[in-house]
Simulated scan of single mutants.
Amino acid sequence: MGRNAQLIRQWAILKQIETNRWTTILDMAGQHVVSTKTIRRDLAALMEAGFPLYDERYDGKVYWRLNEEYKGLPLASLSLSETAALYFSKKLVVNLAAPPFSNDIASAFKKIESALPERNIQFLDSLDAMISVRADAPKDLDHSKNTIRILMEAIGEEVRVKMQYYSVHSQQKKTYTIDPYRLMYFRGGLYLFARVEEYNQIRTFAVERIESIEKTRDEFEKPPDFSVESYLESAFGVVKEDPFDVEIIFNKDIAEYVRSRVWHPSQVVREIGGGRITMKMHVGGEFELGSWVLSFGPSATVVSPERLRRRVEAELGRALENYRTEVTVAPRKSKKVDSKKAAAAGARRS
C-alpha cells in the first residue's frame, strides 16, 4: 500500500489513543488489521512528527497514551487577530466541509472559540452578522456520503474500484473499473479523477452520478508525478481536452464584470472601444466554455474558433425555438364528488 494508506492509518491510531486511554499495541493491530511490528513503526513515526505519545504499564499490560497537556494547535501562540481570522473563516470552511471531515471541522472551531474570551466572542459575533457566505449552487451530496467514504479509503489504500456511473453525455449507465487518484471540490461539486482501466486514460467523474461502488483487492500505483493542478492546467473547468485559442467579445453591459475576474490563467483582456472588451485564452474544454459563453446571453460573442462559434449559435437557435413554440400546461383534472356520498360523510362527522 502507498504512503497515503500509512498516513490515514497513523491518523486513525492517534485518534484512537486520544479517545481511549486504555489502548494497547495489540488492540491497535487488531483494529487496523496489521502486525504489531507495523503499529510500532506507526507509533515511532507519530512521535517523530511531534505528537507526545508515551507508554504506561498497568496491571501487567502496556497502554499507549497522549500527553493530556497537549493541545495540538498552539492557540496560545496565535494573536487575537489571527484567532479572529480563523473564527471568521469557519463560514467558508463549514460551507465546503464534506465527509469524513465535517464532524472534526465543527469540533475544531468549538476549540478555537473556547480559546477566546467571552467578550471577544460577543464582539466577533456582532461582526459575524455582517458577513455571509453563499455557495455557488452546491450539489446535494448527502446521499453520496458512503460513496465519498469508499473513495477516500480506496485513494488512501491505492486499490481499484468498480462502479456504476450515469453518463450525462450518453444518457446511459456504464460500469467502470478505475484507479481512483484524487477528489476535487469545484464550483459546488465533488469530482473524481481516475484512470479508467478499459481506456487506459484519466477521466473526470461527478461523484453524485456514481450509482454504486465497491472496492476490490487489486492494488494500483499512482504515477508519482501526477497532480490534478498540472493535469488541469489548460482546462477551463474540470474536463481536460487539447487546448485551443479562443477569442470572445463582451459588450459594455457585462465588460466590467468579466474584466474583474480571473477566469483562466491564460486570459488576456483588451479594450476595443465603445466600452467593449475582447478576451483571448488558450484553453481546453469546449462544452464548459460554451456553457459559460451562453450564460452571458446576447452580451458575449465568440469570434474564434469557428467550431465554438457554431456550437454557441446552434444552442442559441434551439433556445429561441423554445420561445417560438407556445407552451401549454394541461389543467389538472378535478375529482368528481358524489353528492350523496359527500352528504353521508358530512352527517357522520356531525
Rank of each mutant, 00 (worst) to 15 (best):
L316A: 09
E208Q: 12
L192G: 01
S35H: 02
T204G: 02
R57M: 10
A106M: 11
N67T: 08
L78G: 05
I254R: 05
E306H: 11
K336I: 11
D142W: 10
A115G: 07
F236G: 03
F109A: 02
L80F: 12
T36C: 03
R310F: 10
A345S: 10
A85N: 07
P99N: 11
I213N: 00
K215Q: 15
R41V: 06
S170R: 12
T19K: 07
Q6Y: 11
G30W: 03
P138S: 04
K240P: 04
E221G: 14
A342S: 13
T24L: 01
G50C: 07
I178N: 04
V33Y: 09
R195G: 05
G284F: 01
A98E: 13
W22T: 10
I148H: 03
N4Q: 11
L80H: 14
Y166L: 10
Y176P: 04
S35E: 01
G60L: 10
A343V: 06
T83D: 05
A85V: 09
K71L: 08
V246F: 02
Q16R: 13
A29P: 01
S295Q: 03
I202C: 04
S81E: 14
N322G: 08
L183E: 01
N20H: 07
L7W: 05
A154V: 06
R259A: 12
